[in-house]
């Protein structure tokens, strides 16, 4: 409990934590402005994808998560933290749960900001009208938000792992961003190139990032070679693996 208090204090005291939120809102509002003259169909699409808020959110999350772990080695504060904790696993898992909490807050914020921007920039769109899967636009937005959150767990796990290896957050941020935005492409390229190995390759971690897209468009199954449930399971599996390996490296690292 004490370590969680410490981590919360640090996260709240970092200006970047709050600036990132302000930037996220500004960027979402910027996208919302550009949708005013779009077709109603495009406007609905923009609302359900939270005015690109989920992508901006992921960037913010990668930066905050990477610096949350890497700064301890950068500033040499890991020594103090390790003495205060029962063991280093506790430090790592507490950090992970804190970032998870921040992740939830960001997703709630993105949904609320979307709901706030809609009447200003897209007043003709009815949030309760049917959209995909015989569900309302609002329901689709909520489901998208949940799927994005679910998918972000693996990204946080990977960023934590990378940040535990290096001395600065730069590498973890760079790789995290690359995986986040290029991962799906790399996976589909690998699956289409090495078709004979698809049975194994379809379980690669990058493929799991198609969860949100496959929910929106079932045709994605032809690319991922996995069902929606398999993608969800794979996501969880890679999250657990990355947390486990990351925590092991973090606890064994020479300080």
């Amino acid at each position: 409990m004490n370590i969680l208090r410490i981590e919360r204090l640090k996260l709240a005291a970092k200006r970047g934590t709050w600036w990132a939120i302000a930037l996220l809102i500004i960027l979402m509002a910027g996208i919302a402005v550009t949708t005013t003259s779009a077709t109603l169909s495009d406007q609905r699409f923009n609302i359900v994808s939270a005015y690109v808020g989920f992508q901006w959110l992921m960037l913010v999350l990668i930066v905050v998560a990477a610096s949350c772990v890497a700064m301890e080695f950068e500033y040499g504060t890991i020594k103090q933290l390790a003495v205060q904790a029962k063991n280093r696993w506790q430090v790592y898992l507490t950090k992970f749960s804190l970032i998870l909490g921040y992740d939830v807050c960001l997703h709630v914020l993105v949904v609320l900001v979307t709901l706030g921007l809609r009447p200003i920039f897209n007043p003709k769109i009815d949030m309760f009208a049917n959209y995909q899967h015989q569900l309302s636009l609002l329901s689709n937005l909520m489901i998208n938000s949940f799927l994005d959150f679910y998918g972000s767990l693996m990204i946080i796990g990977l960023v934590f792992l990378l940040a535990s290896v290096g001395h600065s957050s730069a590498i973890a941020i760079s790789v995290g961003v690359a995986v986040c935005f290029l991962g799906e492409g790399v996976s589909s390229l690998a699956l289409s190139t090495f078709k004979a190995l698809a049975v194994v390759l379809r379980w690669n971690p990058f493929n799991m990032m198609c969860l949100q897209e496959q929910y929106a468009n079932q045709d994605y199954q032809g690319i991922t070679h996995l069902t929606l449930a398999q993608l969800a399971g794979g996501n969880l599996m890679w999250t657990v693996i990355s947390i486990g390996v990351g925590a092991l490296i973090f606890s064994k690292r020479h300080i």
Partner: peptide, 19 residues
């Protein structure tokens, strides 16, 4: 290295540089 719960309540330290 993996178990040092006793330190949290009983020990204060300054090692090398201030953290």
């Amino acid at each position: 290295q993996l178990h040092h719960a006793v330190l949290a309540e009983n020990v204060g330290a300054l090692i090398e540089h201030p953290a």
